[in-house]
Amino acid sequence: GGHPVTTQMVETVQNLAPNLHPEQIRYSLENTGSVEETVERYLRGDEFSFPP
């Protein structure tokens, strides 16, 4: 991942996926670069990993 992630982006995802840890959200956003894509992954039931 190398996309810039803002606190705003993390908070937006958190509102839609409250049971995800912020670190999981941030890591996913760094890989996708997209709030929409991260939320899609969540709704699909994809696994969210923590940063290594």
Score class of each variant (00 low, 15 high):
G2E: 10
V5I: 11
P52W: 09
Q24T: 02
V35Q: 03
H21S: 14
L20T: 01
T32W: 06
T7Y: 12
V39I: 15
G1V: 12
P51G: 08
L16W: 10
E11Y: 09
R26Y: 10
R41S: 10
T6D: 07
N15H: 14
L43G: 04
E11K: 12
G2Q: 13
L43I: 10
N31Y: 13
V5F: 10
T32K: 00
Q24D: 00
F48Q: 00
E36H: 11
L20F: 03
H21Q: 09
H3W: 13
F50G: 02
D46C: 14
T6A: 05
R41H: 09
E11H: 10
Q8V: 11
D46W: 12
V13N: 01
R26M: 09
P52N: 08
S28L: 05
G2C: 14
E47R: 09
E23K: 08
V39P: 01
S28F: 06
E30C: 10
L29P: 00
V10L: 11
R44G: 04
P18T: 08
L16V: 11
A17C: 15
D46Q: 10
S28I: 05
A17H: 04
V10Q: 06
T12D: 11
Y27R: 05
N31E: 15
M9D: 09
L43F: 11
A17I: 13
G2A: 13
S28D: 10
E36A: 12
E37A: 11
V13Y: 00
T12I: 14
R26G: 02
S34R: 03
T32D: 03
P18L: 08
P22Q: 08
G33Q: 07
V35E: 04
H21G: 06
Y27K: 04
V39Y: 12
P52V: 08
Q8Y: 12
G33D: 03
G45P: 01
T32I: 02
V10R: 04
E11D: 11
G33I: 02
E11L: 14
P52D: 08
V5D: 03
G45K: 03
I25Y: 01
Y42A: 06
L20E: 02
P4D: 11
M9F: 02
M9Y: 02
V10E: 05
P52Q: 08
T32A: 04
V35G: 01
T32P: 01
T6L: 06
P4K: 15
A17K: 01
V5M: 04
E37C: 09
Q14I: 09
F48G: 01
T12A: 15
G33S: 05
G45Q: 04
A17F: 15
N15P: 06
E30Y: 11
P52I: 08
S28E: 04
N31H: 13
L20G: 01
Q14M: 14
L43N: 10
I25Q: 01
Y42T: 01
E23T: 09
P22M: 09
V5A: 05
D46H: 10
D46V: 09
S49A: 15
P22W: 12
P51D: 05
E36W: 14
G1L: 12
N31K: 13
N19Y: 10
Q14E: 05
V39F: 09
V39C: 05
H21P: 03
V10F: 09
T7D: 15
S28Y: 06
M9Q: 08
S34D: 07
E23S: 12
G2D: 10
P18Q: 08
N19E: 13
T32Q: 02
G1K: 11
L43W: 09
L20Y: 02
S49V: 14
A17E: 01
T7S: 13
V10N: 03
T38N: 00
T32M: 04
E40D: 11
P51I: 05
L29R: 00
T12G: 06
Q24S: 03
